[in-house]
Each structure stands twice: as C-alpha cells, then as structure tokens.
Amino acid sequence: MSPIRRGVMFLLLVGVIGGLCVHYEATEDQRDPYPAAEDIDADYDRHVGETALLIGTVESVDRDAGTARLRVDHDGGAFTMTLAEFRTTVEPGGTVQAYGTLEAERTLRVSRTVVVNESGGSKLYKYAVSVAGAALVLGLFFRHWRINLETVAFEVRNRD
C-alpha cells in the first residue's frame, strides 16, 4: 500500500472512530440500566423509586447518622445528593460509587458502595502512576522501532 493510500485509510478510520464516539453517546441510555446523572438532576421527582448507580465526590460524612453528601458531576453541571445508610469509611474529597434506590428530597438509600478513591490524593496517585506507564510504554516502543519519514511507517531499529 502506498503512503497516500494508507493516509486515506487512516483518515477514514479516524472518521469511523469519531462515528463510534457519537453512536456510543447517542445510545448510552439504551445500554445503561440506570437513569443518567443529567436526567436525575433535570427531573428528580420522576426518578424517585428507581434504582440508580451514582459516581461522585464525597463532600462530607456524618458517621453517627450514617449519611454522607455526594457531589455528582455530569456534562451539564453538578448536583448534590444525600446518601442514606452510608456505612463506608471514606474521607471528604474521595470518590465513591453508590448503588441504591432514589428517594424523595434527593436522597439515595445505599445498598452497596465502592470506594474508588479514598481521598482526593488517590486521584493524584493514579495520574502519577499513569504518567509513569506512558513513559514506560513509549520508551519500550521507541527502543525497538523508529519512524521512517520517507515511507511514513515504523521500522525496526538496527541494533549496533
């Protein structure tokens, strides 16, 4: 295949990937068995009684009352929910998944929680480790391959 044909194929594939991203978002509601955060925020009362899975940042925890305040961010903004029967150890700033039933007055009665990040700091840990991963994978790849600008293709590096 000539570089030009490969270039055309490449652009075509990038277009299809873009299409996939559009289709993925457009059909999200059909795949997701739970109401979307945007929809819960826009019309809360309509969703009371439904089962929901919310992912958000813990703002505060009241250990004695077994409740917590959860901020849920979505593409169109953010809203705050009360989590009832919340019995998980997490610091404010941490990220949790909360699964349960939506009740009146923006309350989620939690049946299961998963702590995704214990505190705001664990997010930083994840990013730092991911940067190390990116450096490792690029280093490993370009140790063995280089780009040939004439053929616009990777070729194996000759070992000395």
Binding site: C21, Y24, E28
Partner: peptide
C-alpha cells in the same frame, strides 16, 4: 472534554468509546 467536543460538533460525543 467530551462536552467541549459536543459543543463544537453539535452532536452527542463521548471519547469513552475508545
């Protein structure tokens, strides 16, 4: 963010598909 791309393209868009 996917939200920014949505605004520019004017169609639903989510990079998470990758």
């Amino acid at each position: 963010g996917s939200g920014t791309i949505e605004t520019v393209l004017g169609v639903p868009f989510d990079v998470s598909a990758v």
